[in-house]
Design a protein around this nucleic acid. Structure first.
Lengths: 201, 201
DNA sequence: TTGGCATTTGACCGGGCGGTCAAACCCGGG
DNA sequence: CCCGGGTTTGACCGCCCGGTCAAATGCCAA
């Protein structure tokens, strides 16, 4: 078995990855230190390296796991479904990811900002393939007159940009809105309006 | 005079800030090293510290200078102008910033991702004040029926998110589009369409 | 109870970090 | 020619980094 065996291993690897996510998301890969991760995890530094061969390995493990989670909502877009409902569901699901997994979003943002040195391959491969596939579906929907015509890749980019913004720039959003706001609730309403108007044939 | 005096000082401080921008944007503050900056600048490390008291000071200088540039386009939005034209001009100008100053955009993104420890004050102060001011203008335009009604703050967020995405996630955008594309030209067309449909009363 | 293996850790290592300093260098004015 | 201040740098410092290792500890089956 390649995945963890005993319950102690399972639990500690989980704890370590959670702590690593916390620190990597906040400091970037180079800015994060094993001591920080160890402190957050409540374990000693050598103990971290008993479960993962290196800092690099922790980062890689997080990114690999992340990419699946990240692509799932797009994968779920059903070519046979109602175009408007499918796209809206994708927007909603992506915004929920930003709300519920902001650390993952920031980890990803950090990686891309740094030029994607560790996941470029996956981006040029799986990600591009999936986007291309879904883009042909979008193009068909446009040709059928069921949604307005536009560049399908950029439609997808706009969904990414608008939803991830609320996770990655959370500090700025909250500072600008001031107290007494629920950014994600408001964003949900706003994005529904935005894409309804954009997509209407 | 608080700004630099001699031409050597002027030139070297410029060179250093440019190199620092390069490295900070690519690695984040903690990930960047003085040796990297020195190498990019073509100067020795002690020479850097002859012109700036610390790594921190270089970062601060960049952020301060950046914020002005960043807010200018929004400041330029004229309450007496034509709403549609003013907003479109803002979108266009912001996208040009992403295209022409991607390093600045990524520096800013890094800072916000890390929780804005060094510009939180400016964000809660000047930035919030400016956004609030322009939001009342937008709200008035909506009340007058000259643009569609929506949450003004989130309209501004959407402009930020959509334009900065093309700078900050440039690697991903290019990887997904594949060769033979001009991301910023396409983005210009797409965003014009998007905001035209969104804002039409 | 005990033997053995998984787990944990204190002490340590070489290298790289931000920053210092004294000495050397450069160059225009007298 | 040379002198004095602005400029440049090699050598260095103390600290922290990622990672190692031998020894100690915990845990469960026999």
């Amino acid at each position: 078995m390649s995945p963890p065996r005993t319950r102690i291993q399972q639990k500690n690897q989980e704890t370590i990855l959670d702590a690593a996510l916390e620190v990597f998301a906040a400091q970037g890969f180079r800015g994060a230190t094993l001591d920080q991760i160890a402190e957050v995890a409540g374990l000693s530094k050598p103990n971290l390296l008993y479960y993962f061969p290196s800092k690099e390995a922790m980062h890689q493990a997080l990114l690999t796991r992340l990419l699946d989670t990240w692509l799932d909502p797009l994968r779920a877009m059903n070519p046979a479904g109602d175009p408007m409902a499918e796209i809206m569901a994708y927007v909603r699901r992506k915004l929920e990811l930003s709300r519920d997994y902001p650390r993952e979003s920031r980890l990803f943002a950090n990686e891309i900002l740094q030029g994607a040195p560790r996941i470029r391959e996956a981006i040029e491969g799986d990600l591009k393939a999936l986007v291309d596939e879904k883009s042909t579906v979008l193009t068909r929907w446009m040709a059928e007159g069921r949604i307005a015509t536009m560049a399908p890749h950029h439609l997808i980019f706009s969904i990414w940009a608008l939803t991830q913004h609320y996770a990655d720039f959370d500090v700025q959003v909250r500072a600008v809105l001031g107290p007494g706001h629920d950014p994600f609730a408001e964003a949900g309403d706003f994005l529904e309006t935005l894409f309804a108007r954009l997509l209407a044939p």
